[in-house]
Design a binder for these strands. Structure first.
Lengths: 105, 105
DNA sequence: ATTTTGCGAAACCAATTGGTTGCGCGTATA
DNA sequence: TATACGCGCAACCAATTGGTTTCGCAAAAT
């Protein structure tokens, strides 16, 4: 199936995982210990996150550490850009309205 | 079921709908005409978007116009904030690294 | 060499999803 | 009043989801 970042962050557990490994790379087991779920379930989430390149793995002895591809997160920011323009425009309009009201008083 | 904005924007059709009505409020039929889907399917998407307060409706004669609650979009931006801090820090670190390399040359 | 451990893949289940079709209600238009 | 249209709801289907349990593999520890 087609996966993208927005699918990936739709799940609260995955958002938590992202926030977790953003601070420090971790193994699937370590991640699972932070939530009330099993290692396999975490593994499934990690797979989804991997599929859309939001995380990458790093071998360390016999353990595999997962870490966040922070660059990929910027794509969400990029998508938000179009709306940021809108709400900034609205703010300016509100600002102008207030200025006009003040002037006419 | 529990719904949130991240669930809402997970679907590409819904993101398209959001972008569409961000520019101009529209009726379900008008929205459906922009995509290769039926009015009922659009209606379902609108329901989901409504459930998490991303859009609101406005009666206009016998038609109902849907418009974006741009303020709600800021919540995504708010969530991104924690990661923005990270990538800005990394950028600074890269900047410092480059400066050090230059200095040592 | 044997045991233990961590890991991912596969099979399976219950719940949710997007989509369709069909129905009934309310509002304009004739 | 009668007709046509736009809308949302309910029922249904195929596909996907998150979760569990089970299994086999490979690396470390004994």
């Amino acid at each position: 199936m087609r996966r993208d970042i927005f699918q990936a962050i739709a799940d609260p557990t995955r958002r938590a995982i992202i926030a977790l490994i953003a601070v420090q790379a971790m193994t699937p087991n370590a991640i699972a210990e932070h939530f009330d779920t099993t290692r396999q379930a975490v593994s499934k989430h990690l797979k989804i996150l991997s599929e859309c390149d939001l995380i990458k793995q790093e071998q360390q002895g016999r353990e595999i550490y997962y870490l966040l591809e922070i660059e990929k997160m910027k794509e969400i920011d990029k998508w938000l850009e179009q709306f940021r323009k809108i709400w900034e425009t609205r703010f300016e309009q509100l600002d102008q309205l207030l200025a006009t009201l003040k002037k006419n008083k």
